[in-house]
């Protein structure tokens, strides 16, 4: 401990300052959880700061009885699970062949794929494309239409390239086909990277609202985020229509929204510790190079 006095003072201030930042980051979460668990009396008085007051679960009772909420939950899980599976499969099938230096045409395909990170047709042509293919209001459209993230593809390709060639050669001498080499050597070797990419895909799927909102019109296909989006927009328009000070009355509605927000976050909060283990490594897997 040969730190000077000035360094120690700085260290202490730095520690306190970072704690303050962490607190500011976490506070919104704590607040909405507290409000969602409080009785409407205290919520209406605007007198909740850190802990729930008049603890009760009525907002949650209300929400689980709301029509369509279970369907929305089911749909969100459906898109997350099948979407992630399809995404991972397609990403592996793309990354493995394109990581083989000997493959003819590899360069041009790589360039064409990476180019899409910087130039895309944009929202309207993409929407018309779905429409023309009859993929409006289709679960398959959601699952396949957004399957590959170029960024994740590059991460995995870079990882596959770092696997020593000797492994592939040895397997080939033993008579293994390319497909077997991929499935039985490369995939098992890259479980940590696949976990990282899978978690990225899962988070993206669970959290997405924009394209499901545009493409899905049928009530029994929309995911939770789209339902929540409607509630948030309704809240805004309710605020617009109300004069100052008069939105008190409807505030129980808001703890309803808060509890939906909590429910929409729970799967991510559960996944978070797993994600955290992997994502720092994952991001560092490869520098993003074309």
């Amino acid at each position: 401990m040969n730190r000077t006095k000035g360094e120690r003072i700085f260290g202490a201030f730095n520690g306190i300052f970072l704690f303050f930042i962490a607190a500011v980051t976490l506070y919104p979460f704590i607040y909405i959880i507290a409000v969602s668990l409080s009785s409407s009396k205290y919520v209406n008085m605007g007198d909740i700061w850190l802990l729930p007051r008049g603890f009760n679960l009525s907002a949650y009772h209300q929400i689980i009885r709301k029509e369509g909420i279970w369907t929305a939950f089911f749909n969100s899980f459906y898109y997350m699970i099948f979407g992630t599976a399809v995404s991972l499969a397609l990403t592996i099938l793309g990354a493995y062949p394109l990581s083989r230096v000997r493959l003819k045409g590899r360069r041009i395909i790589n360039v064409l794929v990476v180019f899409t990170m910087w130039f895309s047709a944009g929202m309207v042509p993409a929407y018309l494309n779905f429409k023309n293919m009859g993929l409006l209001n289709s679960r398959l459209g959601i699952i396949f239409g957004f399957a590959v993230s170029t960024y994740n593809f590059i991460l995995l390709r870079t990882y596959f390239m770092s696997v020593p060639d000797a492994l592939e050669e040895a397997a080939r001498i033993d008579g293994a086909s390319d497909f077997r080499i991929m499935a039985q050597i490369f995939v098992p070797l890259s479980i940590p990277s696949l976990a990282t990419i899978g978690l990225f895909y899962a988070v993206e799927r669970w959290n997405s609202y924009f394209w499901p909102m545009i493409l899905l019109t049928n009530e029994d296909k929309i995911p939770l985020q789209v339902v929540l989006k409607k509630m948030v927009v309704d809240m805004t328009s309710r605020l617009d229509n109300m004069e100052f000070g008069r939105d008190m009355v409807s505030f129980s509605e808001d703890s309803f929204i808060y509890s939906t927000m909590v429910l929409a976050m729970i799967p991510m909060l559960i996944l978070y510790p797993f994600i955290q283990r992997y994502f720092v490594k994952g991001i560092m897997l490869g520098s993003v190079k074309g």
């Binding site: 962490a22 976490l26 805004t236 000070g245 939105d247 808060y258 927000m261 929409a264």
Partner: peptide, 25 residues
């Protein structure tokens, strides 16, 4: 703590902003 908000959906964040900034409550 500081990485956490990145994993929260746009809709939830927008909902937080809207309700935290609501005019009277």
């Amino acid at each position: 703590c500081t990485y956490l908000p990145h994993f929260i959906s746009t809709v939830v964040v927008a909902g937080m902003v809207t309700s935290f900034l609501a005019p009277s409550t």
